[in-house]
Design a protein around this nucleic acid. Structure first.
Lengths: 236, 236
DNA sequence: CAGTGGTCTAGACCACATA
DNA sequence: ATGTGGTCTAGACCACTGT
């Protein structure tokens, strides 16, 4: 369906991409200058400039003012890893999702929770603990703490019908998130809620999200290692 | 150090980004058209077009020809996850790296290895098994199979001095990679090589990389759960 | 039809690096 | 001084959408 004649900037891009894929320019090698490409493709400089800028933002080339454009080595396989809403994820596999709410209340922030949400220990925080089941099998234990200042009506929802992620996306402005992924054993409580052995390996995702003002939420997602996997792909 | 007067396209971008962060345009809302921004900032259309195109490639807005530009909801926290070379990673922490080579040979591809590398079972493959130590502590057990067609001299290296990743980046043209991350127990062999308990949770990364022609390598990286963690960040 | 984004041009001025 | 990239302009034509 693409038109027989691709846009000029696309043709330039493709020419350079192919050359990179075929090793015409080794990593670090000097690539054609904008002027050369203008001559070769008989287009304006803005056009080749756009092609090169996009390759740069894709991480394929490096440009240095006053010097030139260089082929970049893909010395780090980097990929976009998407951590999406459990509900969507399960439905997208064509399976059924059920949420069991084990806890949904206001409590006093512990020292560690306070630190994560930039509160002082003892301040009020919302705390929910929900187990998500895929086709009746426990997939994830979600322990979440929410800064009341960011989502005052967080607890006024029916968590069996809507996930915390959905609530928070709708009611707050996400600005930044940090996370880490590790393998560890579940706590005793988590093991019981997930119905797994106490020493079963689990994939644990810990994530904190922030609005422009401050922390919104901290969450610990525990998945039985044999039921969950993160996947990704990288392609230029 | 940035000049007092940022580039016009940067000013336009920043104006829009701030508006998005502050909720001036809710997710899905119609944003100013190019013409409006041209008038407001008194710049040419190419300039606001660039600002909008970049926001689009950053995933912050969605543009529909003939309709308009819309604020996107960040309904999936996605982040670039970088899987880098162990050697670099350890050195960047200021620690020492040591590689213990337990295996480096040519062997016949098993059914599963053959499938991963698009070979037929029984064909020759290179197989290395290396344990990487950080400050003397085992951090990663790397089991790697390499397609000889892509890197014929793979085995002619001293793996205590250079990592397979470095060799393969230098000698092949990476085109595509797929991976998954899971938590599981180590095999008995891996537990022994890493010096951990047989039921210790491990973070396992399985990755396959491809050139334009075909599979280059398949690798299984096993990390003791209490010594390794993947980290990431997301920010607009 | 009018309004939107998609793209291109032919020139321009600037900052920077190298010789 | 020359060559490189960084950026901007004022206009243009097109494809698409909705009324």
């Amino acid at each position: 369906m693409p038109p027989a004649t691709a846009a000029p900037y696309q043709r330039v891009k493709q020419y350079l991409k192919q050359g990179l894929a075929r090793g015409r320019w080794a990593a670090g090698a000097l690539m054609p200058s904008e002027a050369e490409l203008v001559a070769r493709f008989e287009v304006s400089r803005m056009t080749v400039n756009r092609a090169l800028r996009e390759l740069q933002s894709e991480g394929l080339v490096e440009r240095v003012q006053g010097v030139g454009t260089f082929a970049r080595s893909l010395d780090a396989v980097s990929s976009t890893l998407t951590i999406s809403d459990v509900h969507e994820e399960i439905l997208s596999r064509g399976h059924s999702h059920e949420a069991r709410v084990h806890l949904a209340r206001e409590e006093e922030a512990s020292v560690s929770v306070a630190a994560q949400l930039s509160l002082t220990p003892g301040e009020r925080v919302f705390h929910t603990r929900i187990v998500h089941l895929e086709n009746g099998v426990a997939l994830q234990c979600e322990d979440r703490w929410v800064n009341p200042a960011e989502a005052p009506d967080y607890l006024q929802h029916d968590f069996t019908q809507v996930t915390p992620t959905q609530i928070l996306f709708a009611s707050t402005q996400l600005w930044r998130a940090v996370y880490h992924i590790e393998a560890s054993r579940p706590t005793r409580l988590e093991a019981r809620l997930l119905g797994i052995a106490a020493n079963a390996p689990c994939l644990v995702v810990v994530r904190r999200t922030f609005s422009r003002i401050g922390p919104i939420t901290a969450v610990r997602l525990v998945h039985p290692g044999d039921r969950y996997m993160l996947q990704g792909e990288f392609a230029p």
